[in-house]
Design a protein around this nucleic acid. Sequence first.
DNA 1: CTGTTAGCGCGTTCAT
DNA 2: ATGAACGCGCTAACAG
Lengths: 338, 338
Amino acid sequence: MVTSRDVARVAGVSQSTVSYVMSGRRSISAETRKRVLDAIEQLTYQPNAGARALASQRTQVIGLVVRFRPGADTTGLLPFIETIAGCARAEDHDVLLVTADEGSAGLTRLAGRALCDAIVMMDIEADDARIPVAAALRVPVLLIGVPDDSAGLHCVDVDFADAGRLAVDELAAAGHDRVVVIGHAPDVVERDINFVRRFQRGATAAAEAHGIGLDLVSPVPPDRAGAEAAVREALARGGDRTGIVVPNSPAVQPVLQALLDRGVVPGRDISLIGLCTDVAAEASTPAVTNVSLEPRDVSRRAMEILFRLLDRSGDRPTQLVELIRPRLTRRETTLPAP
Amino acid sequence: MVTSRDVARVAGVSQSTVSYVMSGRRSISAETRKRVLDAIEQLTYQPNAGARALASQRTQVIGLVVRFRPGADTTGLLPFIETIAGCARAEDHDVLLVTADEGSAGLTRLAGRALCDAIVMMDIEADDARIPVAAALRVPVLLIGVPDDSAGLHCVDVDFADAGRLAVDELAAAGHDRVVVIGHAPDVVERDINFVRRFQRGATAAAEAHGIGLDLVSPVPPDRAGAEAAVREALARGGDRTGIVVPNSPAVQPVLQALLDRGVVPGRDISLIGLCTDVAAEASTPAVTNVSLEPRDVSRRAMEILFRLLDRSGDRPTQLVELIRPRLTRRETTLPAP
DNA sequence: CTGTTAGCGCGTTCAT
DNA sequence: ATGAACGCGCTAACAG
């Protein structure tokens, strides 16, 4: 292993000078800087991360706590991870992956062993047992998702209330006088993820504002049988002018299929709006009008806040909860405005 | 921050004794061991990862290099990541995530900065520029995927030749006298991922063994238009007794849909076998008979080998390339054997 | 502008 | 069975 001492010897300077050239924390004459940089290149020197962390109390690592669940909307996880990793690298940090099934222990380990400088925690439940633990850590923690009580932690999430409003507004504009929300997945409802309620609140408020009815069919398993039962119930309750919202990414396709199976064609006979990524919306046949959750925007903003929190100099963001506005894209499953 | 010195003071022993209690690398009297463990608990002491890495030359971290691609079969990535993370934790290691778009630089960084003890690299191309770099690192590297030349590195992958054979065997048994392989995604073909060829070889060999014809429609974009064109071509070329194989996870659903749209019902009129995860196969309507790639088995085996490579004591595995046998599951899209 | 020096917290050898 | 002491490679305060 080549150390900064080796570099110093080759460059004919002291070891600390090498360190200062790398950190730029004090001015170095152009000439010695060049000698050092040449030596670094010649030896392909790279600083030892452990030694650096020990001396500087900075690991240059972001801990990322994710929950892998079988089946569920786990597909939507990758854009988050990818964006977070990208943002981290852009700030010369790496990402240490920790799974949520370690629970609070994962958090205390990350902080207690000084494995990372900050933590991003995803998939937050409304009453999440990890929150108080996270808030007591000696590293900043940022939540993607909004718990009932964030205990002073910063949160970033999609504005689900706005998503509900967007969908209902669109259906109202398309002339529907009734909206059925075919609900979230059973496990999501059970785990009491906050966004279920927030979405519902937004949708209900919008329906009231438009003076149209809103029914809820929930929960809905994201499979064939679940979708068929839900569609049957949804159609039974309403008439021709019913619009359907599916705020459950993996259920969108089955619901669409169930409608088609019954000879009800979204975009011709009825309107269907899904809450899912654009990729998923475009992949289905016909392409589903969707409200996109913009995982990349959420992640980017989260990392922005996180690095501001890490900047000792910078001023910290005042707003604790930040909601990213979703975007509705009209595709083939909604009726045009009359 | 509480250090091992603090623990030592509270326990009334020397710092080195604390270290030895934790590592178990020398015998400690039951009494002092207890005193130390009590102190550790009382202070909730956790060893500093950087200091430990510096002193022991071991980071307890596995570097994981993954490629996030937009759209593609990126969904299949999560089971790998999840399983790898789980196996790592089971051996008291953590996982540092690095994206493939750093290329070789990511590898040299991981090893050069001593960020990890070993590396798992996924999504290997047939002629992957990173292989020689990886082989020269001072840490063991394990490939998930098989390049043309692994440069002495250990590889684990699905036995794609066997997958091709399994699918064709099944179609032959179902009485089909012709097989059409609706190919891989364009980007996969273009990047020359090795498994395309391996699958093809296995399928061709099996077809010859059964004395039945085999046609290839390739590449196929995993969208509606791509699938429809492919299906049209596939049906045009063959007769009633044609069996279809789709070795392209995201294209399975569109191909199925395209068949149904033409009034051709798999399981009644024709046989369709997909190369995809069981979850994906079960989700579609009707459920697709599939050859599963068993990402969890592959990952588990990969980590098994990796940790054996890390064990200085243990004997290293002799076999360089290890192929995991896939499994065919009959569902609703294949005809019964006559 | 540069060199010297003192830790950072832990693993491990040497001494007892 | 235990303690003292050294060094891992680097940052940063101090001294010039």
